[in-house]
């Protein structure tokens, strides 16, 4: 319950990492704070003396479509609310937009950041599941003797376990990037909730598909599920099963589902869901999402106006 004694709002990544380097034991990064501050208040996290708020760093709050490089880049401190409303992302990152727009209410989405969602490393985090299906990469800034090095990694590289990331002292997330969909590609996210006192979904899933324009079969596919293991989960066996298949063929879809059910590590979690129920929900979500993604590709309508 003892609160932090100082609150810093650096305006560059250098400044932020320098502050953290000066006070390695006592300082922590905060972005939206919707998870961290609550955990501090409830005593689930040990008290900190210094909070370094990275949301005032301009570099971290950009959404960029790069003309030269085929990447869309989202700063780590971009909020869920901005992702939900961003016209470019609505077009090119449908599953991420859908995932971000179901988190909390608008008040929470206006402060909670995508970087915070990923750094918290919960296997069921909606934004993370959406990002994973986009086959996104993550940019990590590392403080080296007064210099900042930036490196790109596949997103799964930052997950160490439930609620734990791989970031070392002197490191922070700064951005995410993914390749925008070409013709014949689309994505979708959905989740199963319960109306009772559990904020995390029972199961979330995101699918990105590319169809062969001639044959209508799947050219490439990514499928993310959560929680389906200790870290956010890519259903690679299901992706494999989907490749070359007709996504509207019910038997093919059932094979994909079985592959996903076989590879997902589903648990029973107290007052949230049974493993058996989650097993069923893998099927429900994949059926819905494959249908929706194929519809989007066929109609070429990714997502309507802001909801």
């Amino acid at each position: 319950m003892t609160r932090w004694r100082s609150y810093h709002t650096p305006s560059t990544v250098e400044e932020a990492l320098a502050l953290l380097a000066q006070h390695p034991e006592r300082a922590r990064i905060v972005a939206g704070g919707t998870d961290l501050l609550l955990d501090l208040e409830l005593g689930h996290e040990s008290p900190v003396e210094m909070l370094v708020d990275i949301t005032h760093i301009p570099q971290l709050t950009q959404i960029q479509e790069d003309d030269r490089e085929p990447w869309i880049q989202i700063g780590a401190a971009v909020t869920h609310g901005r992702i939900e409303r961003d016209p470019t992302l609505r077009r090119v990152a449908t599953c991420l937009v859908e995932a971000c727009s179901v988190v909390g209410g608008p008040q929470v989405r206006n402060v909670a950041t995508l970087g915070g969602n990923v750094a918290h490393a919960l296997p069921a985090a909606d934004g993370t599941v959406g990002l994973l299906a986009l086959d996104a990469q993550v940019q990590i800034a590392t403080w080296r003797e007064g210099q900042v090095d930036y490196t790109w990694h596949p997103l799964p590289a930052v997950f160490a376990g439930p609620g734990r990331n791989t970031l070392q002292p002197g490191q922070m997330l700064t951005a995410f990037r993914f390749r925008p969909p070409g013709p014949g590609e689309a994505s979708a996210f959905d989740r199963i909730m319960r109306p009772q006192g559990v904020a995390l979904p029972i199961l979330g899933a995101a699918v990105r598909l590319g169809l062969d324009p001639e044959r209508g079969t799947v050219a490439h596919a990514t499928i993310a599920l959560g929680p389906a293991g200790p870290v956010p989960f890519r259903a690679t066996a299901a992706e494999q099963a989907l490749r070359g298949a007709d996504p509207t063929d019910l038997r093919a879809v059932e094979q994909v589902i079985q592959a996903a059910q076989a590879e997902a590590r589903l648990r029973t979690s107290r007052h949230r869901a049974s493993a058996a129920y989650r097993h069923e929900m893998v099927a429900v979500l994949l059926r819905r999402l494959l249908r929706r993604t194929v519809d989007r590709i066929r109609t070429a309508v990714p997502l309507g106006g802001p909801t």
Binding site: L38, L51, D53, G105, V108, V111
Partner: peptide, 29 residues
């Protein structure tokens, strides 16, 4: 609620609604 759950504390910061109960004041510098 002191946990950004109920919305009773909603105010607008630079035009955006936020739950002010668990919003660090210095974030609104």
């Amino acid at each position: 609620c002191n946990e950004a759950e109920c919305g009773a504390c909603t105010v607008l910061v630079n035009g955006q609604p936020v739950d002010s109960c668990i919003y660090p004041a210095f974030k609104a510098q």
